[in-house]
Amino acid sequence: MIDATILLWGVAIGSIYVLLATGLNLIFGVMKLVNFAHGELLMLGAYVSYSITTGLGLDVYLSIFVSMGVIALVGLGVERLAFRRVLGADKLNEIFVSLGLILIFDNVAVLIWGEDSKLLTSPFKGMGLHFGDVFLRYDLLIAFAVVVAILVGLLFLINKTKVGMAMRATSQKSQASMLMGINIEHIYIFTFMLGAVLAGAAGTLFGIIFPFNPYIGALPTIKTFAIIILGGLGSIKGAIVGGLLFGIAENLASATLGSIWGDAVAFALLIAVLILRPKGLFGEKGD
């Protein structure tokens, strides 16, 4: 029997995947960069919020802004010091650099915060709405609303502003946009930081809903890649639909078949979609 609570949790984890996936999709679309360390930014975001809320007593939901800012700076550092230097080499070199970064970030987090699981304490702890048997936590609702707000802002940025236009141009043909006077170096930095900001926000939301430790980053990243591939590379609509589908499929499978099946079913769904549509659900046609 399908429980509505399971669906809700699927949507909750799905909407966090959506944030991560949109960021990664932007970075991949504009820079053609494969960043497997993106999930580490989510992990760091959760820890930054943890330090802010326990150290300064700031509200968790306000700490989102701090974590977005700090992670943007981390993103800047990562882009300048590591990824910028391997851009244009073989894609496998980028994965290699990401694996190195995962080692660095995971262990730095252990050194600073320790290995124990942590949870951000929400002001709405234990509160929520009752719909018959279904209990809807306020935190899930807020997380969903925050994700929607961020996505609306992002779509506005990409479609209506000059920077957004430059980003779209760079993603289509970086050399041609360079000739049109776009400083693609700056666009790359901006895009990477934007992706990092989304990961930072996702980290705080993740930390409010799920307990976290320094090693949570790796699996969400790979799932996020699966999601943007499921949805179609470069498509934000695809990332949203893919993220929600993936989250729900994973949660349903865990609940009905047993927890070990969660990841397997989600990836089986991905493979099935790719067999039918090699470019993903909303992927662009052509070569």
Binding site: F225, I229, A264, F267, P278
Partner: peptide
Amino acid sequence: RLKAWFLAMVTFGFSIIAST
């Protein structure tokens, strides 16, 4: 039929499915 990144994900997914 798949492009490089799609293939990487399918193979990764297969290792998870095999393990399960």
